[in-house]
Design a protein around this nucleic acid. Structure first.
Length: 875
RNA sequence: GGGAGUUUAGCUCAGCUGGGAGAGCGUCUGCCUUACAAGCAGGAUGUCAUAGGUUCGAGCCCUAUAAUUCCCACCA
């Protein structure tokens, strides 16, 4: 097949992906002859569309997976999706709203039917999008958090924890979303600072004409007040302690209690106590044996205990109640006050802390070992600083509220006997009460927090609770790649779950990456409308360009900016790869290619091979440290600057010449370097590298299963590399003269050289002549032989003279040389300064001192020659 | 309130265990040189946030300060 004359990713990306899939390259199986390398994908929500965050996350994983696969590991990248309990349910409820339906009106069974239908319809969408990106997941293992076997794992884990006393049911203050009508875990609440008020309300002391003023941000909750608390040391209230207050409006008699929890210097020093609606108040209530009066319904309206406000929405109630207080003269004042208000992370409604009976996971015993494995570095975070965030969270962790008043999710395997009230937790459906034999049994209505099943992902997807071959071979997994915003939700919970249920860590490494921001550094968001759709980028530029734009230059843990400019720069680079490869391949037509081991390599060949070899070393090391951004940069520099700008140019004199043997020689090196570079590039830009690779003469099979290049210490070629760099410096110097003197690039000129490196320059004359457009390279003993004014440049051990005749403005040339001289002078001053420093001579390493001396001599010599050249021009 | 990060060229960011400040984009000059103008060649551009300290030597280590971003907690 011909290789296309222009880079057009649409011509091959889809075709190549299909080939990979058909050949089964993505599949992994337990193989005792190989070392496994396992990554489980952070499962995207079934409601999700591929966004830049996924694109980044999956590009990172795919590049590492491909790298390891080529290195010979049995590589498993296990894909899947998350049922996303609350997010999905919100969407389905919304969709039903359009039909005029509600959850309640259709009932649980019908609702779940709709949810599964939704999953069938949209759940696969993101999978297709991941494929477009080039993700080399083992799709035969595609998992879903509500698959039967994952449900089995969930039940197993729930029952185990329950039996160990680590899951319990309790009435406690939780975060309640009145719109989603469910409890939320602490992690599911987002706080934002909002301008609000601090209402000061007067509570009368019973039978006296005295008042205690309390300050509150949520006046409507006063309807549930059962006490007022002050600090026991507070002098202002000493004489009132133990007295009774009259709760305004409700006219309930409530005690004034003393509790250390109250701060002396905030507000008025008196705090209204509402145990049903505030976590701290709840604790105070327990300490003082106070009743609990809940005044709100699940939908955020006031209940019958709110008296005349019953039925009002909580914020409406606030307004009315404050007005009433004002009228009664019981509102002392309202201060402007900013405070943090919690919002539901799915629907943004203000959450209401309220008392509710829920299921909790007892965290303390689980957190301890999870902290230890990170301390011991059995689980390693990259970058390391994220361990601090992890410790901080783990050590201050509160019990995890896991029940949700939703329908879409893993139903809690708890059963209640309606006759005797027995609670039974079981993996199997319970039909008969184990205590009283009653058959009036019903299952708990609630489902589990989505993250409860996500926490099991690394082992539930491999067969847990059964001890399968997969689990034995691929678990613990090797690497988890995720953004930092999900450490608490997911990473932490996987670690303690893995330890508790499998007795092992779930993964060895955690690579944390940042968020993708827009060109101005803002978070991409729907509301700002500044998001860029990765699918559009793929459509316009191809998946390779998208991947490269995301990967090039990223650093672990740091956010990255994404812009059209960046995309175009990356496209240009990939286009460069395309064209350079095309150049090499076109020249190969009808030519014999040899293995480089059969060639007698010259210094330019050895230079590029050693540069390739160095690049292999650096890129491999970078990848092992998950420094993908550095690896990309390293490779780009090598490919563009060294291979394209120099080696390909150096090959042209032979490619355009008549010597067939030389052509074969240079083509063989070109092919060798190209082939290996493509392999190095493949993890990041898999499609184009595959497309080109398949066109390389003599190549069989796919690049994605080819062997990754290995560093070889024998290929260093220091001497030849130095020679090559010297020749390059000569060429650059001549180009510089031409640019400085306005000598047209098309104009051929003569070059006269005084040098101590004559033999090397003779061998290299073909390169110098071609790359600097020199008519003829002439060697002379000294400038005097030329007997005319010329432009000149002085290099180490070499002087170059270009007679430009009348073209030259000699005043300008003198100026130019003076500039050169200045540079050399400053170098001399620098070296002299160092060498004059006794401390430096005494304490710096000898090699450093020696090299400073060497440099000084070099520059002194150059100064002499430049000065001479200036004098001659002046004279 | 606690913690973490960032501060280097006009912009976005690299700079490994301290030993001559880098890249990409932008910009300037000259080039349609038989792979590529999505390109080639050559250039310009920096009190490495500030102030101290350690050191023969600091962008890098230490201490303070400032600006900025984020995370956690939350006092009614």
């Amino acid at each position: 097949m011909e290789i296309s004359t222009t880079y057009n990713p649409k011509e091959f990306e889809e075709r190549i992906y299909k080939e990979w899939e058909e050949k089964g390259y993505f599949k992994a199986n337990p193989n005792p002859d190989k070392v496994p390398f396992t990554v489980v994908i952070p499962p995207p929500n079934i409601t999700g569309q591929l966004h830049m965050g996924h694109a980044l996350n999956d590009s990172i994983q795919d590049s590492i997976i491909r790298f390891k696969r080529m290195q010979g590991y049995e590589t498993l990248w296990l894909p899947g999706t998350d049922h996303a309990s609350i997010a999905t349910e919100v969407k389905i409820v919304d969709a039903m709203k359009a039909e005029g339906l509600t959850k309640e009106s259709v009932g649980r069974e019908e609702f779940l039917k709709r949810a599964w239908a939704w999953k069938e319809k949209y759940g696969g969408r993101i999978v297709e999008q991941l494929k477009k990106l080039g993700s080399s997941c083992d799709w035969s293992r595609l998992a879903f958090t509500m698959d039967e076997n994952l449900n089995k794992a969930v039940k197993e884990v729930f029952v185990n924890l329950y039996e160990k006393g680590l899951i319990y049911q309790g009435k406690r203050i939780i975060n309640w979303c009145p719109v989603c009508k469910t409890a939320l875990s602490d992690a599911e609440v987002d706080y934002t600072e909002e301008a609000s008020g601090l209402w000061h309300i007067k509570y009368q002391v019973k039978g006296e004409d005295k008042y205690v003023i309390v300050a509150t941000t949520r006046p409507e909750t006063m309807l549930g007040d059962v006490a007022v608390a002050v600090n026991p040391k507070d002098k202002r209230y000493q004489d009132l302690l133990g007295k009774t207050l009259i709760l305004p409006i409700v006219n309930r008699e409530i005690p004034l209690v003393a509790d250390d929890y109250v701060e002396l210097d905030f507000g008025t020093g008196a705090v209204k106590i509402t145990p049903a609606h505030d976590p701290n108040d709840f604790e105070v209530g327990l300490r003082h044996n106070l009743p609990v009066i809940k005044v709100m319904n699940d939908d955020g309206t006031m209940n019958e205990d709110a008296g005349k406000y019953a039925g009002l929405d909580r914020f409406e109630c606030r307004k009315v109640l404050v007005d009433d207080l004002k009228e009664m003269g019981l509102l002392e004042k309202v201060e402007a006050y900013n405070h943090n208000v919690g919002h539901c992370y799915r629907c943004s409604t203000i959450v209401e802390p309220l008392i509710s009976k829920q299921w909790f996971v007892k965290m303390e015993p689980l957190a301890k070992p999870a902290i230890d494995v990170v301390k011991k570095k059995s689980v390693k975070f990259t970058p390391e600083r994220f361990t601090k965030i992890y410790y901080n969270w783990m050590t201050n962790i509160k019990d995890w509220c896991i029940s949700r008043q939703l329908w879409w999710g893993h139903r809690i395997p708890a059963y209640y006997c309606e006759d005797c009230g027995e609670v039974m937790v079981s993996k199997q459906d319970v039909k008969v009460c184990t205590k009283c034999n009653s058959t009036k049994i019903h299952q708990d209505e609630d489902v589990l927090d989505t993250w409860f099943s996500s926490a099991l992902w690394p082992f539930s997807t491999l067969g847990y609770p059964d001890n399968t071959e997969d689990l034995k071979y691929f678990y613990p997994t090797d690497l988890l790649v995720t953004a930092y915003d999900i450490i608490f939700f997911w990473v932490a919970r996987m670690i303690f779950s893995g330890l508790e249920h499998t007795g092992r860590i779930p993964f060895k490494d955690v690579l944390i990456h940042g968020l993708v921001r827009d060109a101005q550094g803002r978070k991409m968001s729907k509301s700002l409308g500044n998001g860029i759709d990765p699918l559009e980028i793929i459509d316009e530029y191809g998946a390779d360009t998208l991947r490269y734009a995301l990967l090039n230059g990223i650093a672990p843990g740091s956010d990255t900016r994404f812009s059209k400019d960046k995309i175009e720069g990356c496209r240009n680079y990939i286009n460069k790869i395309w064209n350079a490869s095309r150049f090499v391949l076109l020249n190969c037509e009808g030519k014999k290619i040899k293995d480089v081991s059969e060639l007698k390599l010259n210094f330019t060949d050895k230079w590029i091979i050693s540069r390739l070899n160095q690049t292999v070393k650096k890129v491999t090391l970078d990848m092992e440290k998950y420094e993908i951004g550095l690896a990309c940069g390293e490779l780009q520099e090598f490919f563009w600057n060294d291979f394209c700008d120099w080696y390909i140019e150096l090959s042209k004199p032979y490619l355009y010449g008549d010597d067939e043997e030389k052509k074969t020689h240079v083509l063989s090196v070109l092919i060798y370097v190209l082939k290996n570079t493509l392999k190095l590039l493949h993890p990041y830009i898999p499609f184009i590298t595959e497309e080109i690779y398949q066109h390389i003469p003599g190549v069989e099979g796919s690049i994605m299963v080819s062997e990754y290049p290995r560093y070889n210490a024998k290929l260093s070629y220091r001497k030849e590399s130095e020679d090559c760099r010297y020749i390059m410096s000569v060429i650059t110097a001549i180009r510089q003269i031409r640019a400085d003197t306005g000598c047209a690039p098309s104009k051929k000129v003569d070059l006269y050289v005084v040098t101590e490196k004559k033999r090397l320059l003779e061998r290299a004359s073909i390169y110098v002549e071609k790359l600097a457009n020199i008519q003829k390279l002439n060697f002379i003993q000294s400038k005097a032989e030329l007997n005319q004014k010329t432009v000149s440049v002085v290099l180490d051990k070499t002087e170059l003279y270009v007679p430009l005749g009348e073209l030259v403005d000699f005043d300008k040339e003198i100026q130019r040389l003076n500039l050169e001289l200045e540079k050399v002078e400053s170098e001399i001053a620098r070296a002299n300064g160092k060498l004059a420093n006794q401390g430096f001579l005494a304490k710096a390493p000898k090699s450093l001192v020696d090299s400073e001396r060497e440099k000084l001599n070099k520059y002194l010599d150059m100064r002499k020659k430049i000065t001479k050249n200036i004098k001659e021009l002046q004279g």
